[in-house]
Nucleic acid binder design. Sequence first.
RNA 1: GCCGAAGUGGUGGAAUUGGUAGACACGCUGGACUCAAAAUCCAGUGCUAGCAAUAGUGUGCGGGUUCGAGUCCCGCCUUCGGUACCA
Length: 951
Amino acid sequence: MLYHPENIENKWKKIWSDQKVYAVTPDPSKPKYYVLDMFPYPSGAGLHVGHPLGYIASDIVSRYKRLKGFNVLHPMGYDAFGLPAEQYAIQTGVHPAVSTAENIARYRSQLDNIGFSYDWSREVNTSEPSYYKWTQWIFLRLFSHYYDLTEDKAKSLDDLIGIFETSGSHGVSAAHSFEGSFTAEEWKTKSKVEQDKILMNYRLAYRKVGYVNWCEALGTVLANDEVKDGLSERGGFPVEKKAMTQWSLRITAYAERLLTELNDLEWSDALKTMQRNWIGRSEGARVFFGLDGHEDSIEIFTTRPDTIFGSTFMVLAPEHDLVQKITTSEQRSEIEGYIEYVNSRSERERMSEVKEVTGAFTGAYAIHPISKDKIPVWIGEYVLKDYGTGAIMAVPSDDERDDAFAKKFDLPIIPVVDKTDYPGSGKHDKEGKMINSGFLNGMEVKDAIKKMLEYIESHHLGKKEVNYKLRDANFSRQRYWGEPFPIVYDQEGVAHALDNDRLPLTLPDLQNFLPASDGRSPLARAEDWVTETDGFVRETDTMPGFAGSSWYFLRYMDPQNDQAFASQEALDYWKDVDLYIGGTEHAVGHLMYSRFWHKFLYDLGKVPTKEPFLKLINQGMIQGVIEYIYLKKEKENGLSLFVSKDRLEAWGGEESFSKLPVHIDFVEGYGGSKPHLNPKGINHFVQWRPEFVDAVFVGSTGDKMSVSEIETSENFMLYTESEVGKMSKRYYNVVNPDDVVARYGADCFRMYEMFLGPIEQSKPWDTKGIDGVQKFLRKYWSLFYEGDQWLVNRETPTGEEYKILHTTIKKIAEDIERFSLNTSVSAFMVCVNELKRLDCHKFDILEPLVRLLAPFAPFITEELWSALDQKGSVHHATYPELNPDYLVSDTVEYPVCINGKKRDDLAVSKDITQSDLESQVLALESVQKWLEGAQPKKIIIVPNRMINVVV
RNA sequence: GCCGAAGUGGUGGAAUUGGUAGACACGCUGGACUCAAAAUCCAGUGCUAGCAAUAGUGUGCGGGUUCGAGUCCCGCCUUCGGUACCA
C-alpha cells in the first residue's frame, strides 16, 4: 500500500466520530487531567494557520496523557460574542447570530480537518442563551455580594444591610467606593433610593462614572483599538472622552489574593511578573492637602511620604471632580481650553508621550500639610483619573515627570534627598539622606519613610495605605452583540436584579444594529424589550467580551446542565485546569479576570479550588507576512500610480507613497527574498480592486505601463514591500490550514507546525520546510510497506535496534513533559533515519514506535496499528515503557579541549581512573602539539562530559 | 513611555544544570537512476585563507566574570506582545 494521507485521514475521521473515540466522562478509577485551549473568537476570516499551533501542542499532550492512563478532559468551544460580528451586521444587515453560526460551522470543519481529540459533546458557545444564562447568573451574584475585608471573602449584601441596621457604616470593613459614613439610626431614616445609592458602592458589580471614547460623527463609542491619533480609524473623525455611568466590577477587592496566590502557580516567571506589575501593589500614604479658600481638600496617594517637604506644587487629573470647583475666573478659559485638548487624547498617548509636558494652572493654591506653605494646584494629562486618587503631590526633586513639569512651567524645586553616598542611584531608588526636610533631616530614606508615616497618622493628616495600580474593570459596552444585563430600573432609577427563574434574559431581535441616540447601545432601539415590565426599564448596555470567557472552562465540565453552571459532582471531579495553552496577548486581561471570577465563585462555595489554571504555557503567535505595494499619494494626470519598491526614489521617495496591503495570493515569491507582482499578479490585482483598472504601474525597469501593456510584457515585475505582522483578514494574508492539509495531510501539517520551533516563540508562517516532514512520514511508512508489500517481520531485534527505540522513547517522553515538541519531531526523524539505515522492519521495534508517534500523527499511526493487527484504537493503547538497560554503554567519548576550544576526541572505558585518563589525554598527539614541550597549567575533567587542558 | 519576551549559518531551528556551537530539516552544489521530468538515493555545505592537513574567526552590538559563556552580570540596539472597549 502506498501512503495516501487523504484516504487514511477521511477513513479514520469517520470511524473516530462514529465510535465516539474521544468522548469522556468522570471516572473515579483513573486520575483526571484537564487540558484546555484558549477558545477562539470565530472570526469571518476563518481559522488561520496560527490558531492550531497551541491546539496541536495541547492535543499531543492530551493524547500522550491518555496513553499514560489519565482520564483526559480536552474540550473546545467558541468565544462567540464580539465587535467584528456587530460591525459586519452594521455593514451588511446580516444578524450577528447568523454570521457567528456560519463562522462557527467553518471553524468546526477546519478543526475537524486537523485530527484533534476534542470531546465535541462538550462544546460551548458563549453567545448561546443556555450558556449566557449562567454568565448572567454569575453577574447577579456579583451584584448581590460585597467584599468583607475582615473575613477576606465575598459575602451576601443581606449581611451588609444587617450590619448597617445594627451598627452603621463603621460596623464593617469592606471594599467599597462610598464616601462618607453613617450610624445605624441614620441608615434607618434614609430613603430606599438613598440606601440603594450607598449599597451600590459596596456591590462587587456596581455602577459608576467612567470615560469612553466618544465619536460624535459616528454616533458611537469606540474601542481604543479603533482610535488612531485622536481620530476614528474608520472615517478619521474626531474622538473625545465622554463620561458615562457604567457597570464596573470590583476586581480591586481581590487584588491581594490575586497577587499572593499567583506564587503557587506553574506559570512562567515572565507571566507572573506581568500580572504582578499589572496589579501594581505599592505601600505608602494617603494624605490630605487643604485648599486655600475652600472647604474641600485634595486627597493624594504617595509611596514617598519622606519627600513631602520637597512637594512644591500639586497636579490633578484634568477630569478630577475638584477642577471645576477650584478654578479661578482668570484661569477658567485656559483650563477649559486645556481640558478640551486632553479630551482629544487617548490614555495611551497621555502615558507614552512623556517628553512633551503639558498642563495648566487652576489659579488655586493648596496648603502644604506640614510647612503650611501655599503651593499652586495645576492640572496635567500625565495624572490619570483612575490611577490612585487622580491627584498627586509633585516632588520635582525626586520624580522625573514632576521634574520635567516643574522645569517647563518654571515651578520651584527643592532637593530633599542627598544621594552623594549612592553614586548611580536614580530618582526612583529609595536611598539617600534627607535634607531640607525639617525633622527628617539627616535620616536615611528608609527610616524617613517610616518616621513620616507615623507623623502623618499621629497628626491626622492621612494614613498608611496599600494602593494598587489595578483598577476596577469597566463592565459595560454600548453594543448589541453581548450578554444583556439581567437588570431593570424602577422609576426612581434604582437597579433591581431579575429573578433567577427569569434567566436567561435573551437579546431582542433587531434589524438595525447602529447605536441609538446619545451613545446608547443598539438595544435601546428595541423599545418593547426595554419596557416589557410595567414601570421598569431594562439596562441597555451589554457585557464585554471577557464576561463569557471568564468562566467557560467550568462549563466544559458539565455543559448541558440547566440547573447550575456545572454540577457539584463534575466540579469536584475535574476541579481545575491542569494545563492551559494560549497566547501571551491574554497574559493580563483574560487570565486576571478569570482568576477573579474563580475566586469569587470559590468564596461562594461553588468551586472547590482557589485558582483555575495550575499550569500555563504561552504559545507564540504565528505571524503573517504582509505584502504592500506603493501607491503615489497624488494622482498622476488623474490616474493612480503604483511604483515598484526599487523605483521609489525616482518618484519622490517613500514619503510620497501610501502602502496598500495586497492579497498574498497575487504575490510571486511571497515571504521570500524578492516578492513581486508579475503580469498575472497585476491582472489579479485589478480584478480584485477594479477601481485601479486604469492605474499606471512603474515596474522594476522604470517604465510607466498600463494594465494592457503589462499583459503583453514578459519581464514585468512590481516589487512589493514585505512586513511581518498579524495574520488577519484586513491584511489579506490569512493562510488557511485546510489548504495545507489538502496538500500534505493533517499528520504532516501537525508535525510541521511543531517542527517550526519552540511553542512559546512567535514566527512568521512559512511552508519552506514542510517537505522535510512529508519525507519523514513517507520514510516512516516505508518501514512497514514497500509498495504493496508488507515488510514487518517477527525477527528478534539487535541491541543496536533496541537502543535506537529506547533512546527515542526516553527523548520523546522528556520532550513532551517539557513541551519541547519541535525537538521530539527531530528525534523521530533521527530514529527513522537510523532504522532505515539498518533496514529494520521488526515488529518488536515498529509496534512500540507506532504507539510512540500516535500523539503526533494520529492518522498514519491508527492505520498502521490496524495493519499490525492490533486491537482497538491506538489512541486507547498504552505508552511504550522505557527499559534503561538498552541505553547503557561501557565507553565514554570525551571531547578534548585546549583552552576551552575543542581539538580532539578521546574514547575511553567508562571505569577509567582519573590519573589514567589524564595520562591518556597528555599522550594525545594533538595535545602534545599545543603543549610544545611545556607542562599543562591545569587539566579539568568533567566526568562523562568533557576534558579541558589549560596551557 | 511603562511591563514582558526574542535576536544563533542563505532559511526554520538544536545545544535540558556554565562544558564538543550549528542536531534535525529546508535551500543550495555535485553525483546516481531516467529519453526527460517527478520521485528516490549518495556526497558536500557557518564564514575566511589553503590542493590539503590545518589555522583563524563566529551565537544582535559594546564591556565584564570564568579553565571554559549562545547560556551568568552591566550598558545599548532592533523586532514582537500587552498597556485596561480587538479577541
